[in-house]
């Protein structure tokens, strides 16, 4: 038995290098969430397009992705076949959780998809425009209750930035955190809160049916065919986008990074990937190379500033 075991081990050691061009994608979240779906969509497209022969997805959930990130850095340093999916939520989570590992320790590859937040009110609300909301907020910041996702998440950051941009003290924002968009949606529909702020996907069906009124979206520009104005169109100079990205392990050579860059570029232009984006209603926000590095750095600085302003980070 022992000999057999040893033989198996040795064969294993010999066979491992044979899988050279195969990626392992870590989704730092439980199966089913946005990052997991992104990772599994990448797996699907990379395999279907023949970019990579065999792609594995591993789930390492916890603490806004920071547990997965730490494990990724420890386990895969210098491994050119390891990828991790992440997103804007991670930027905030690293700061609020005082994570020992930051995004500076991985090799960012590209931003893949994204979604902007929308600010909605119940159909019966007296608030008709962003101006009405600004007026109410300026008169008494505490009287405007905002329903959105967890504290320190993208929705909370967007609400804080909104207040700051229109000249209201962000620490006065009366933000009510709900776990998951569904509960926030119920609170807005039931008229329990003044406004709701979360990803467009959470509110879309109710906006279309007329149960909710969208005051504005936080995106840089309007979605194609959408009649929801952006904040900048409404006179508030603010853009908040919740993006998802892919990054590689730390300690890669320039050639290794270039190879991954090329594979991801092939992925995002492939028909399979575009088809997946279409059916899931994901917005293509592909941004690679140095442009993404600059964008990431800017987002980290801005997020740190607002989290300090809201009082979540010291």
């Amino acid at each position: 038995m022992n000999k057999l075991f040893l033989a198996a081990l040795m064969t294993g050691a010999l066979v491992v290098p044979g899988f050279a061009a195969d990626y392992t994608i870590m989704a730092p979240a439980a199966p089913g969430g946005g990052w997991d779906q992104t990772a599994r969509a990448m797996q699907e497209a990379l395999q279907a397009e023949g970019i990579s022969g065999n792609v594995q997805v591993t789930n390492v959930p916890g603490a806004g992705g920071t547990i997965g990130l730490a494990q990724f850095v420890n386990q895969y340093s210098g491994n050119p076949e390891a990828l991790i999916v992440g997103g804007y939520v991670m930027v905030g989570a690293i700061l609020t959780n005082a994570s020992p590992v930051s995004l500076a320790e991985v090799t960012p590859i590209a931003r893949l998809t994204g979604e902007s937040d929308v600010i909605v009110v119940p159909a019966a609300s007296e608030l008709q425009t962003v101006d009405d909301l600004v007026a109410m907020l300026k008169a008494d910041p505490g009287s405007v209750s905002w329903a959105g996702g967890s504290a320190g998440g993208v929705d909370h950051i967007a609400a804080g930035l909104f207040a700051k941009t229109v000249g209201v003290d962000p620490t006065k924002v009366n933000y009510i955190a709900y776990s998951g968009g569904g509960e926030a949606l119920a609170a807005v529909l039931g008229g329990q809160v003044t406004v709701g702020i979360s990803g467009l996907g959470e509110f879309d069906a109710q906006i279309q049916s007329g149960d909710l009124r969208a005051l504005a979206s936080t995106g840089a520009e309007r979605l194609e065919g959408s009649d929801i104005p952006t904040l900048s169109e409404s006179g508030v100079d603010l853009v908040v986008e919740n993006w998802r990205m892919v990054a590689a392990a730390p300690g890669l050579s320039d050639e290794e990074k270039a190879a991954i860059d090329a594979d991801i570029e092939k992925l995002v232009t492939s028909a399979t990937w575009q088809g997946i984006l279409e059916t899931n209603g994901w917005q293509d926000m592909y941004l690679g190379g140095e442009a993404f590095d600059a964008q990431l750095a800017a987002d980290i600085t801005a997020t740190e500033a607002i989290l300090k302003d809201i009082g979540l980070v010291q």
């Binding site: 916890g62 920071t66 547990i67 730490a70 959780n97 020992p100 967890s150 504290a151 709900y178 979540l312």
Partner: peptide, 16 residues
Amino acid sequence: IDLQTGQARLAFGIPD
């Protein structure tokens, strides 16, 4: 993590 404030409670600095 407390949902309303994002502050850790009784976590003793353990990320898990």
